[in-house]
């Protein structure tokens, strides 16, 4: 099974995410109140690390484990939906204290009521599908 490698990386990521406490509602509250460096330190080290690794991938023309070329994400330019969608996401992030990755991680950590958060998020996705043609893009 080719996808097992993604399962294994996911296990690593889920464990790291839990240990980082980025999945904690308390940490998200602290972040939006600017009362600790913790979340900013997390993002502020995660992003440059990813940036450096992507630079090395490009520089040494590293291929995937199967020898394919690696493509970087497409450039995205100004669109209202990024800022509007981002803001709506921000409302939800402050309330539920979790973005999608942490929702899965919180359920795994025994916070079973986050199943309702997950189902509500899926409802939000379905609702977006129904109304997306009417939204400013």
């Amino acid at each position: 099974m080719k996808n097992i490698r993604f399962l294994l990386l996911g296990i690593f990521f889920g464990f790291v995410l839990t240990k980082s406490e980025a999945i904690s509602w308390f940490r998200i509250q602290e972040m939006f109140r600017f009362q600790s460096i913790h979340m900013f330190g997390l993002l502020g080290t995660a992003i440059p690390t990813a940036m450096l690794a992507l630079y090395l991938i490009k520089k040494f023309q590293i291929h995937t484990v199967e020898g394919e070329n690696i493509s970087v994400p497409k450039k995205k330019f100004f669109k209202y939906r990024y800022i509007l969608g981002g803001t709506i996401f921000g409302f939800g992030w402050a309330l539920a204290g979790a973005c999608p990755g942490p929702i899965y991680a919180l359920i795994g950590n025994g916070n079973l009521v986050f199943i309702v958060v997950l189902l509500s998020a899926m409802l939000g996705v379905l609702f977006h599908t129904l109304v997306k043609d009417k939204l400013p893009q």
Binding site: L95, G97, V113, F127
Partner: peptide, 19 residues
């Protein structure tokens, strides 16, 4: 916090194209 929060996370990620 649970239902509306989750709903806005889901709606916002799709509209904004990511999380």
């Amino acid at each position: 916090f649970i239902v509306i929060g989750g709903f806005l996370v889901g709606f916002g990620t799709r509209y904004g194209g990511g999380c």
